[in-house]
Amino acid sequence: LFHAQEYVKVLNEALEMAGNASPEAAEAIAKINEELELDYIREDFDKLLNSMGEGSGRIRSIVTTLRSFSRLDHSEFKAVDLNEGLESSLLMLQNKLKPNIKINKHYGNLPLVKCHAGQINQVFYALIDNALDAIDSSKKPGELTIRTASEPGWVTISVRDTGTGIPAEIQDKIFDPFFTTKPVGSGTGLGLSVCYQVIVQAHGGRINCVSRVGEGTELIVEIPLTNQRG
C-alpha cells in the first residue's frame, strides 16, 4: 500500500510538470483526466488505501483473537494470561454487545495460570454469552461486569449481569446437563454443564452462582494456582 501511494504521488507530480510545460500537453492531460477520472484518484486514492490498510489491520486483529481464543498452539496445560482470554471472548461476542448494554471491566493483576487455555476460554465465552442473553431478555438497558482477582492459591473470575435473574428453586440445577432457563429452541442446556466439567473436573476449581430474580446473576469461577492438573 505504501508503494502504491508513492506511485500515485509521483504520477500526479509528473502530470502537473507536463501540463505546465506546454499548452498541448495540458490539453491532452485534461482529456486523459476526464476519461480516467484522475481527479478521483488524486482526491480519494489515499483515503481508499488508508481504508484498505485499516481493514487489513482489523483482519490481523481478528485472526490473532481467534488464535488466542482457541489456543490451537496450546493443546496441553500451559501458563496463560486469563485477562487476555476474557478480552478475546468479549471480542468474539462483539456482535451481541448492544448500545444499551454497558460493559464494566475490572481486571486484577493476575499471575499466569496453568490451564487448558482453549477450554477456559470456552467457559468465559459461555458465561459472557449467557449474561448478555439475560440482559437482552430483561427488555431494558443493563450492565455486564467482569472482575478478576488473585488471592493466595487461587484466581477468581466473576461475570455479573443485571438481567432477569434465576429463581432460587432452580439455581441448584443450572449445572445439570440439558437444563436451561432459556425459551425452547434458544439453548441446549449444555453451556453451564460444560463450564462445570471444565472448571471443577478438569482444573480442580470451583464455580458458583449468586442470583436474584429481577436483579441479575453473578457466576464466580475460582481456579487453583497450586496442585493443578495436567
Rank of each mutant, 00 (worst) to 15 (best):
S51D: 13
M52R: 07
G53P: 00
G55C: 05
S61P: 00
I62V: 14
R67Y: 09
S68W: 00
S68N: 12
E76G: 05
E76N: 12
F77M: 10
V80D: 07
N83D: 05
L86K: 04
L86T: 05
L91I: 09
M92C: 00
K96E: 14
K102C: 01
I103A: 04
I103N: 02
I103T: 06
K105F: 08
H106C: 08
H106G: 01
L110K: 09
V113W: 02
K114C: 02
K114R: 15
K114V: 03
C115N: 09
H116I: 12
A117V: 03
I120G: 01
N121P: 03
N121W: 02
I128F: 02
A134H: 15
D136Q: 13
D136G: 05
K139E: 13
P141A: 08
G142M: 04
E143C: 04
T148E: 09
S150V: 14
S150K: 11
G153R: 07
W154D: 04
V155Y: 05
T156N: 06
T156R: 11
T156K: 12
I157D: 01
I157Q: 01
S158R: 11
R160V: 03
G163S: 07
I166E: 05
A168Y: 01
A168H: 05
E169D: 15
Q171R: 14
D172Q: 11
D172K: 10
D172R: 04
K173D: 07
I174F: 09
F175R: 08
F175V: 10
F175S: 10
D176F: 14
P177L: 03
F178V: 09
F178K: 14
T181N: 08
K182C: 06
K182E: 12
K182A: 15
V184H: 05
